[in-house]
């Protein structure tokens, strides 16, 4: 289980306008590409250096592929990162102002305190 890697996916996709669109349109392809090419990239280092050990487990990969923000919350992904990326990708599909954000809250209603631990 790698909350860190889930967060790294959300963080690196959210900050790249092209990747936001690619993740929206082709989540399975984007997640597979990212895990193969980007998961082990050390941010802020030159490209010759990479880590050797980072990989999703199956539920994490599937949650990202399914755009399943409820599952990501359950897995302890950082809620701010998930919310920010999913607003960027899906708010546009809702006509009402804050419609997506309110639906998002509704779909998480079965969670009560304490929420899943987000410490990495």
């Amino acid at each position: 289980m790698s909350k860190y890697l889930l967060n790294k996916f959300l963080y690196t996709v959210d900050r790249d306008p092209e990747l936001v669109e690619r993740y929206r349109e082709d989540p399975r392809g984007t997640v597979a590409w990212w895990e193969a090419e980007r998961a082990n990239q050390l941010l802020n280092c030159h490209t010759g250096e990479a880590s050797t050990w980072l990989a999703f487990d199956d539920p994490e990969r599937e949650a990202l592929v399914a755009h399943d923000y409820v599952k990501l919350f359950e897995l302890g992904a950082h809620p701010f990162l998930t919310l920010t990326l999913f607003i960027a990708a899906f708010e546009r599909d809702h006509a009402e102002p804050l419609g997506f954000q309110k639906e998002y809250a509704l779909r998480l209603q079965h969670f009560s305190l304490p929420y899943p631990d987000i410490a990495t």
């Binding site: 923000y69 954000q101 309110k102 998002y104 809250a105 509704l106 998480l108 079965h110």
Partner: peptide, 9 residues
């Protein structure tokens, strides 16, 4: 609350 069930109330 951000990214949780109590957001945007």
């Amino acid at each position: 609350e951000l990214g949780g069930p109590r957001q945007f109330g």
